[in-house]
Design a binder for these strands. Structure first.
Ligand SMILES: [Mn+2]
Ligand SMILES: [Mn+2]
Ligand SMILES: [Zn+2]
Ligand SMILES: [Zn+2]
Lengths: 140, 140
DNA sequence: TGACAAACGCAACCGAGTTGCGTTATCATT
DNA sequence: AATGATAACGCAACTCGGTTGCGTTTGTCA
C-alpha cells in the first residue's frame, strides 16, 4: 500500500512526469517521522548511492508545495522543513536540545481565534504556524 | 519617554557598557511598530550616516536576546526578526503580499494547551511561536 | 520513433549569519 | 586627568541554505 503511487498518479493526470526523484522525495517525506529539510533529503539520496543535485531537490520541493502535496515548516533555525500535508491539522513540539520533533494536536483548535482576528484586524487569514519549544523527556 | 535609558542602566549595573550602538539598536526596536531584522537595523544605521558593521549588529542582537531584553521571531522568510520582549504576551499576523505585520492577542491563551501537551508528550515546554498568515485589508 | 515539455545538472551567484583576530572605546580605579 | 582591564567593535574571510540562467536529458504521448 504505497501512498505515493496514488499521489503521483494524480500529478501525472495533470501533465506532470513520474520521475525517480519525485517518487523518492515523496516516499522519504511519507516515511519520515518528522519534517525534513532539503539538505536532509539530499543526504538521503546520497546514502542510497543516488546523488542528486541540490537544485533539483529545491525545485521538487517547491513543486510539491505548489501542488499542495507537502507543506513548509520552520523551527527557528533558518532552514525550511517539509512534511506531507496532513489530513488532520496538527502542530509540532521541538526539543531545543536534541531537535526531537513530535506532532501535537490541540484540544481546542484555533478556528474561533482566527475568525475573531480576521474581524478585528481586517485580514483574510489563510493559515497559521504554531510550534512549541521545550526539553524532551530524554534531555531533561 | 525614553524607555531605553532605564534598560541600559540595568545592563550597566551588571557590568555591561553603555554604547552608541547598543542605545540605538534598542531605540530602533522600541520605536518600531513591527519586528526588525539585522539587515533592517543596519540599514537604519546607514540612513543616519552611522555605518555599523553587520557583525556588530548580530552580536548586539544576540546579547540583548541573551539578556531577555528582546525576543527572536520568524515569519517564514528565513530571516530572524526581533522585538522588545513584550509585557503582555502576543502573537503576529503577517500579510503574505506586502509583509505588513500586526500584533495579535488571543482571546484565550495557550496555557492550558501547553499543560496538556507537556503531560502527554513528557516535554518541559519553555515557549511557543504562533503566527497567522493572510492578506491584509489593503491587499485583498 | 519522433517531438515537445518537464525535469535535471552544473556553475555561478545571493544573502543571512558566523568566526578569528587585532583594534578601539567604555568605565572603574587611582 | 592618566591608567588599565575588558567589553565592544571593525574587518576579512568564511559557512550554508537557497536561487538563477542555461544547456542537456528524460518521460510521455501521438
Ligand atoms: Mn507533523
Ligand atoms: Mn509584536
Ligand atoms: Zn531532546
Ligand atoms: Zn498586505
Amino acid at each position: 500500500m504505497h501512498e505515493s503511487s496514488h499521489i503521483l498518479k494524480g500529478l501525472k493526470d495533470q501533465g506532470h512526469k513520474f520521475t525517480k526523484v519525485r517518487k523518492l522525495v515523496l516516499d522519504l517525506l511519507i516515511k519520515s517521522p518528522k519534517p525534513l529539510s532539503s539538505p536532509d533529503i539530499q543526504k538521503a539520496f546520497l546514502a542510497r548511492k543516488m546523488p542528486v543535485n541540490k537544485t533539483t531537490i529545491y525545485r521538487e520541493l517547491a513543486f510539491l508545495k505548489g501542488q499542495g502535496v507537502i507543506r513548509e515548516l520552520q523551527f527557528g533555525d533558518n532552514t525550511m522543513r517539509y512534511e506531507v500535508t496532513p489530513d488532520n491539522h496538527h502542530h509540532h513540539i521541538v526539543c531545543i536540545n536534541c531537535d526531537k520533533i513530535e506532532d501535537v494536536i490541540l484540544e481546542k483548535d484555533l478556528d474561533m481565534e482566527e475568525k475573531a482576528i480576521a474581524q478585528i484586524k481586517n485580514f483574510k487569514i489563510l493559515n497559521h504556524s504554531l510550534e512549541f519549544y521545550g526539553i524532551c523527556e530524554r534531555c531533561q
